[in-house]
């Protein structure tokens, strides 16, 4: 884990989308109330960008709690359209339980 996140528990990366249309945001590690400050700076930088299409790659996300979901919600509120993919069943289920599956096109079941 540490080699993935450089000693931190959570990391947020922003890259241009592979198709050149909008952004791709990767979330890696364990995103919870304790690690929230670790992505705060990148999140603020991301939210300062122009609204545009955005895809969330959740492949590296191992844990997500309701505090972590606020990150996803704030991204979803700012950009449009927002899609998400590669979420693990546990992560997808957290989003789904909160009634937010529709927002990210995630199916937790």
């Amino acid at each position: 884990m540490d080699e993935l996140t450089g000693g931190r528990r959570a990391r947020l990366t922003v890259t241009p989308a592979p198709d050149g249309n909008g952004l791709q945001v990767g979330l890696v590690g364990e995103l919870d109330i304790a690690s929230l400050p670790e992505v705060a700076a990148q999140l603020d930088a991301l939210l300062a960008r122009e609204p545009q299409p955005l895809h969330l790659d959740l492949a590296g996300l191992q844990f997500l709690d309701s505090s972590g979901v606020t990150v996803l919600v704030r991204i979803a509120n700012h950009f449009a359209p927002v899609t998400a993919g590669n979420a693990s069943p546990a992560v997808a289920r957290v989003v789904q339980v909160l009634g937010l599956a529709d927002r990210f096109g995630l199916d937790g079941r």
Binding site: S66, V97, L98
Partner: peptide, 30 residues
Amino acid sequence: VSAGHFGPVVVTEDGARLVDCPVTPPIGVP
């Protein structure tokens, strides 16, 4: 009614079950 919250568990003589109720997004999420 639920805003992003789990439905309750109900225990009757027939046993215990999780009550399924439609979930709307949490308070604070438009």
